[in-house]
Design a protein around this nucleic acid. Structure first.
Lengths: 280, 280
DNA sequence: CTCCGCCGAGTGATCCGATGAACATTCAGA
DNA sequence: TCTGAATGTTCATCGGATCACTCGGCGGAG
């Protein structure tokens, strides 16, 4: 096409110019039309859209959220296609996609390629899946705060689990406990350590709390903290502390479980606190 | 410009053509080079890119996250422009934008119009700002779980605050306490109620915990739950419970504060639990 | 009649180019 | 020296095109 236009004067340039002009006019008309509508007709929607608070995408996100919160969209339900939804909300598909992507990332929506966009079950696990980034990206004093937070929740979960755990769940806990005792591979120990706590947290019966703890115990966070911790011969101590938690669960003793879990996480917290004091 | 090119043959078209050609070639070379490198040289990067796990955007998100986690990008630092970053990660600008938007929404990045994209300070508040969605979208049994979680954290925060609160912070708490006692406007009471707890949570000295509680106490959640709760003449009881928490803070009595806060949230939790049992 | 594979419509995923808007920098003039 | 207008850089938004995937219908084989 370029070569053609280089060769000599032809009609294509005129065509392009006219098209650009037309497109410009259309755009102008559309914009004026949109502004015009906002003036009077759609009052109830206007309160949301007229004050252009933030970006267009942000508005789209809020509107979709509102649709779900108001019950217009239930869990598992399918949304209109991106194209239709974009028209419906008055934004372009690109902005629409960004909104959907953001909500997808937060676990509110789920996009199935070739099928459509659906609302998730809105379970705690879905919504808190992205919670892990906090743990992944925190450093320094924030890591201590995270461990303090985890100490509180983990001890509470252990206490609840001591009261509520059933035989199957206890067997699962014991399985990971034994697996940790019978290997020296650091990676394997780490994996079973995480699984050990996860089993307890799930046995506590509060899925929301378990999901938060899941985010707090993200793999990368564990790895970063414990790399140094376990080098100091803390593996044996960790094993003893796990065994103590387990005994409390078997004994159905909530307070013992609470204390044991608090001590377990508190040890790591204290170690990290001291290490930061030195490093600084 | 169009009119100019219509008038006669000039050099600009040649320039444009050459530029387009060059850009095309560069793109081609980059793509071939990437594919070629993936074969052997860059093994460690290859495990991330070669198996196209998930979507392109997801990969972009993970890569940016990795850059921050690895320290290549520090808090407050400016990222390359969208165009450069898109080329660098091998995705289009649209996908790039989606990734940036997702991270912006999570509070990891911040896009300043006309200036660039920056990494936030990565404070707990930034990262947990989107946490409120969980509270906004949960319903039924999940709301009880959220209140249970809040009971644990709020009581812990109250205990910590009793030990650490200073005069200014205590004055702030008292200000909201008095404001609640001297009005009957529901909206105003609600606002000061939230502020009352926020002041205590901030005085606890754990910003991460305060940020999580902030998300758990989102305005819409409060409104939904307390609309019914306060209709049952619970306002007076709420005032008494707040006063008790305040007395514990003044007395620097952590355990009293813990119990008072636990009772305060627990009352709402129990009420909601019963209400759900009836409704179901 | 039932089952299986092919195929086209529908839909999300990705890319591209263009234009507008907000901010930052530079430079001329008072 | 200070101010403000011109200029450049960058994000924000848009609409179109193309690719990849899924699902349901149709026709042929058994």
């Amino acid at each position: 096409m370029f070569i053609g236009s280089l060769g000599g004067v032809n009609g294509s340039e005129v065509l392009i110019f006219v098209m650009a002009l037309v497109i410009g006019l259309i755009t102008l008309v559309v914009r004026l039309g949109r502004k015009g509508l906002g003036g009077a007709a759609v009052e109830d929607l206007d309160v949301r859209t007229a004050p252009p608070k933030g970006t267009v995408t942000q508005r789209a996100i809020d509107q979709i959220k509102a649709m779900i919160a108001d019950g217009l969209l239930g869990p598992g339900q399918r949304l209109p296609t991106e194209r239709d939804l974009a028209v419906q909300l008055g934004v372009s598909r690109s902005s629409m996609r960004e909104a959907v992507r953001a909500l997808t990332f937060m676990g509110v929506l789920e996009a199935r390629h070739g099928s459509g966009v659906y609302v998730t079950q809105l379970a705690a696990g879905d919504l808190l899946e992205s919670f892990g980034v906090v743990a992944d990206l925190s450093r320094g004093p924030q890591m201590v705060e995270l461990l303090e937070l985890r100490k509180v929740l983990e001890s509470t979960a252990a206490a609840l689990a001591a009261a509520r755990i059933d035989a199957d769940q206890l067997a699962e806990v014991e399985r990971h406990l034994r697996a940790m005792d019978t290997t020296d591979d650091t990676e394997e120990i780490l994996a079973h350590d995480v699984a050990f706590h996860r089993a307890i947290n799930e046995a506590a019966g509060n899925d929301t709390m378990a999901a938060v703890l899941e985010g707090l115990s993200s793999r990368t966070f564990h790895t970063r903290v414990w790399r140094g911790y376990q080098e100091e011969g803390a593996i044996e101590r960790t094993r003893r502390e796990h065994a103590r938690i387990h005994r409390a669960l078997v004994a159905r003793d909530p307070e013992a479980a609470r204390v044991a879990a608090a001590v377990h996480v508190g040890e790591v917290e204290q170690w990290l606190r001291e290490r930061l004091a030195e490093g600084a």
